[in-house]
Write a protein that binds this DNA or RNA. Structure first.
Lengths: 124, 124
DNA sequence: TTATTAATGCGACTTTGTTGCAATAAAGAA
DNA sequence: TTCTTTATTGCAACAAAGTCGCATTAATAA
């Protein structure tokens, strides 16, 4: 299953890199210069997740957001940081601080999904 | 807008109280002894949220879960605790520990939505 | 240039959650 | 009790998110 270098792939990755925040499929479609099918966008994004180029966050609006991994080392692709979703402008920002949550013994963590929503400083 | 005492309302509240974890609409429907329409369930749950009897969490599966507020004081209906969603049994548990996330100046918090998913100790 | 097969577009589909509207029924008034 | 008001419900329709199958397209290597 070798990956191929396609226009959609490059465009989506470029959009995510430039955005510096997490985007949902609609935001990506808006920013794209070429038309891409919804199914294609999701397939590209899920491929990126598999390849750990990107991480996925589910917002408290129930939508999937995807963000380019900047400061994630290949070694531990952990994302124990929060995201802030502004309900005014829709921006889903990465908060830098890492969070540790104590869990009972025997619990195995697979995914961390922390979202705080409210109003960002630009939208006050 | 006075609230009325109906069978659906009582049943759903009883189910949530007994569950001691957060349930989605499907789980509630399964446990209910009477048939209730999906729309009714959501309307009842959203009313409970308004009345702060219940709090809502959106899982990393994109679904809405509702939990009866046990140790929430009426004074500050804040829910800065995490929930653990077991991908095996589906249970969405409240973790007791409260979490503080530092936000940049000027950010206003409206909602805290922290979910960790993985496998719980019963499902190892 | 050709063969292989990953990637795409399209359409259909599932699920979640919401809304409008008519019918029902809870709660207070008479 | 009976009547009136209006909150609540069920049903149907709908919107949006996300997935999947399949035929077509096109990137890569031979």
């Amino acid at each position: 299953m070798n990956r191929r270098n396609t226009e959609s792939t490059n465009e989506i990755l470029a959009i995510l890199k430039q955005a510096k925040s997490a985007l949902n499929h609609e935001m990506i479609q808006e920013r794209a210069s070429v038309k891409m099918d919804r199914a294609t966008i999701y397939r590209v994004l899920n491929r990126f997740c598999e390849d750990k180029l990107v991480h996925k966050i589910v917002g408290d609006d129930g939508k999937q957001y995807f963000a380019f991994c900047t400061n994630c080392q290949e070694k531990h692709h952990q994302h124990n940081h929060f995201h802030f979703r502004c309900t005014e402008c829709g921006k889903m920002e990465c908060m830098q601080s890492e969070v540790k949550v104590p869990l009972p013994d025997g619990y195995v963590v697979r995914n961390f999904n922390g979202v705080i929503s409210g109003v960002c400083s630009s939208c006050v």
